[in-house]
């Protein structure tokens, strides 16, 4: 187990380095740079800036420089947000995004899975139809519409929720719901269909033929099998949700990290884009590791060391 974990962590570091490398050179291949403006800056200023940030050095030198920083968790200065390093940006935005995302992820699991189970057990009943209707809405309506509706109904019309920022704890409710919409719907639907599939399996019939109570058939025999595809989805989902959403944070004026993904790209802010990419990839790789650990815990056919028994 320890050996396996060490192997996985080394692989993860290697993967991140590859991602960083590819991103680094792709960014430089795109025309334009951090100091490109619609109204061009004087050459002298650009030269001075390039010099300040080492952008005048050979590309490979810049690359080594960046990787060196990365290995010491130093993601470099932002080229456009003056006086801030990428580390500063993450330190200021990530906690907020991760808190909102963490609440949303937890609620998605706590609500989505039971709702999916109930829907499956009551297949083709009004409850099932209602849940599936909501779930279909949830996956089809984009989050900016959900967010706008929440603000319109609960802030503007009813005045129950603040419309701006999170200085008031109630301010978390809107962003959390808007962030949950899609994944909550998806998890409910996935749990439902997976549960229906598993309930048709022969081993469920065996359990019933042996007089096992319906409760145990569902929660012991069916659920554990039904959760396998759900876990597969939830892992990467958590990585995406924890790293914030540009749209949701923008609409609710949440000082999170989501907007830097977009801002960084529009500004050609190399270090910010790199930082965000590496950060998201790290979360993602970590969640995949957790998913794999969960698999091996649930399903004895999956062995962590790779070999079959």
């Amino acid at each position: 187990m320890t050996k396996y974990l060490i192997k996985r962590i080394l692989t993860a570091i290697f993967t991140l380095l590859i991602i960083a490398t590819v991103t680094f050179f792709l960014l430089r291949a795109i025309p334009g740079g951090p100091f490109t403006r619609e109204k061009a800056l004087p050459d002298a200023i650009i030269r001075a800036l390039n010099e300040k940030y080492n952008l005048d050095k050979p590309l490979f030198f810049q690359y080594l420089d960046y990787i060196k920083g990365l290995l010491t968790f130093n993601l470099g200065p932002s080229y456009r947000i003056l006086g801030f390093t990428v580390n500063d940006i993450i330190r200021s935005g990530l906690p907020t995004s991760a808190l909102i995302g963490g609440i949303a992820s937890a609620l998605i699991v706590i609500i989505g899975i039971p709702v999916g189970i109930i829907s499956a057990l009551k297949q083709n009943s009004p409850v099932d139809y209602f849940v599936m209707f909501l779930a279909t809405l949830g996956v089809t309506v984009p989050n900016f519409i959900i967010a706008t509706l929440i603000i319109y109904i609960f802030s503007t019309q009813l005045g129950w929720l603040p419309s701006n920022g999170i200085s008031n704890p109630l301010g978390y409710i809107g962003p959390v719901i808007a962030l949950m919409g899609y994944s909550l719907s998806f998890v409910s639907r996935l749990t439902r269909s997976s549960m229906l599939e598993v309930l048709r399996q022969d081993y469920v019939r065996t359990a019933r033929a042996n007089g096992i109570s319906e409760r145990k058939v569902i929660f012991k025999h069916a659920l554990k099998n039904a959760l396998i595809p759900v876990i597969t989805y939830v892992g990467p989902m958590v990585a995406a949700i924890l790293t914030g959403s540009f749209v949701v944070e923008k609409i609710f004026a949440v000082p999170g990290i989501g907007r830097y993904f977009v801002q960084g790209v529009t500004n050609r802010d190399y270090t910010v884009i790199m930082g965000m990419t590496v950060l998201y990839s790290a979360f993602y790789i970590f969640m995949i590791l957790l998913v794999d650990l969960a698999y091996s815990w649930i399903d004895p056919r999956i062995r962590l060391d790779g070999g079959a028994r």
């Binding site: 399996q201 081993y203 019939r205 065996t206 042996n210």
Partner: peptide, 18 residues
């Protein structure tokens, strides 16, 4: 499972894999 018991056609799928 007590007074009347049953076994089925496909033993490969009739046991819970987990």
């Amino acid at each position: 499972g007590n007074d009347v018991a049953m076994i089925f056609q496909d033993p490969m799928t009739s046991l819970n894999p987990v």
